[in-house]
Amino acid sequence: MMLVAKAALGMGGALVLAGAYTFHEGVIRVDVDEYCAGGSHIHMWVPAAVVPMTLHLVPKHHLREAAERAREFLPLTHALIKELKKFPDADFVEVTDDDQHVQIRTHAGKLQIDVEEPDQNVHLLVPLSTLDDVTSQLELSAPGA
């Protein structure tokens, strides 16, 4: 029984540490619903901390290629994300008409993009810190960095 208790404590501790590390940056949420015949319904829920970790596993030449392609936009993206972090809850763009709604905003330190149309809904929620991490990694992977 003592052994079980020790194992439970150990497992509990490990789970807490792993959970805290996984969730400390929040989650990335992607929801895509296509309301048509054969339309896809994608609902993805990924711990944000996984993304920078995964980037470390991506072969260097792929990252270099991605950085090369995004090179023109990286300084702008970096500056934008850095500034957006100062505005954790704000509506930036909203487009509405009688059957569509597009919104770009920050909510609790996450970039939220919502597109609602009669035939499809797309909702994206990404922590700004994750975007910052990805941009930084791409900048570091750029040739000559």
């Binding site: 500056a79 850095k82 500034e83 509506d91 763009v93 059957d99």
Partner: peptide, 25 residues
Amino acid sequence: CNDAKGETVRVNVPLELAEKVLPAV
């Protein structure tokens, strides 16, 4: 827009953000 669809666009930009981001463009 005053048409039948009544499209409305709203953009809100903090001046500080614009000031910092614009030089990066």
